[in-house]
Design a protein around this nucleic acid. Structure first.
Lengths: 125, 125
DNA sequence: ACGCTATTGCAAATGCATTCGCGTTTTGCT
DNA sequence: AGCAAAACGCGAATGCATTTGCAATAGCGT
């Protein structure tokens, strides 16, 4: 049976408060505001459970360890922005057309990922 | 000083023969056709040197360890295709428009990556 | 409030890709 | 051909992100 622990709630809160994909370390730091004793192993255990339960969804970017976002965010097709100054990742709404015209003959497309790099709002200011 | 060893030549040949980005293990297997004694450590050493010398360029895809492609290929802006059946990666020519319209207000774009997933020509056949 | 068991914190262990140490082999210069 | 330095092969060592074992703690049903 699934228990409602303070650390799990703190982790869920971290996601809703951030509104963007978070990595294990980021989650740890954010959730420690609520539960200072929180341990990284617990973060990993909780992440794994929440992914299994379809509450979170992994976000993989080139050359980086996975971040996670709420499944509800993942449900609608979207892509990601990664800030080169603060390394934070943000969700982007929408998509582009014409991807399939990049395909060579004989290739079949079943999905795609787009990552935009640059400076986020906060780092820009 | 830089020496022209048979293993280094074999590795270079693997790239020109493949015409697509290769990972260390793929390189090892391909180059062993020419030099059966080739060792993975040598592949890594050679890759590092060739990247330093701007002969090769690393290709990072979400959730995978880096592959490498000839710098000449990397010089013109392009993206990548990854086959879900054989895991091979291919270069794609061209790009798309309208990426910047995905940006939220206050965000500044300085680059982007696109990866298309699907079945490659060979796996399709 | 009590007790059972899921969950936690901590430190040690994994897994994996990549790197290093070192004795041996090659390369390229003379 | 002769040699010093660069490369190699091999196995052991790193570095990191992630996982696990275990004793202690804390949800939650009764």
């Amino acid at each position: 049976m699934q228990r409602q622990t303070t650390q799990r709630v703190a982790i869920e809160n971290a996601f809703t408060a951030a509104g963007r994909p978070l990595g294990p370390q980021e989650i740890l730091e954010a959730a420690r505001d609520e539960v200072p004793s929180l341990n990284l192993a617990t973060v990993y255990r909780t992440l794994k459970r929440m992914v299994d339960d379809r509450i979170l969804h992994p976000v993989e970017l080139p050359g980086e360890s996975p971040r996670y976002e709420l499944q509800e965010a993942a449900d609608k097709h979207h892509h990601h922005f990664r800030c080169r100054k603060c390394d934070a990742v943000f969700d982007l709404n929408g998509c582009v057309n014409g991807l399939s015209k990049l395909l060579p003959a004989g290739f079949q497309m079943s999905g795609h990922d787009i990552v935009i790099y640059g400076d986020c709002r906060a780092c820009n200011a």
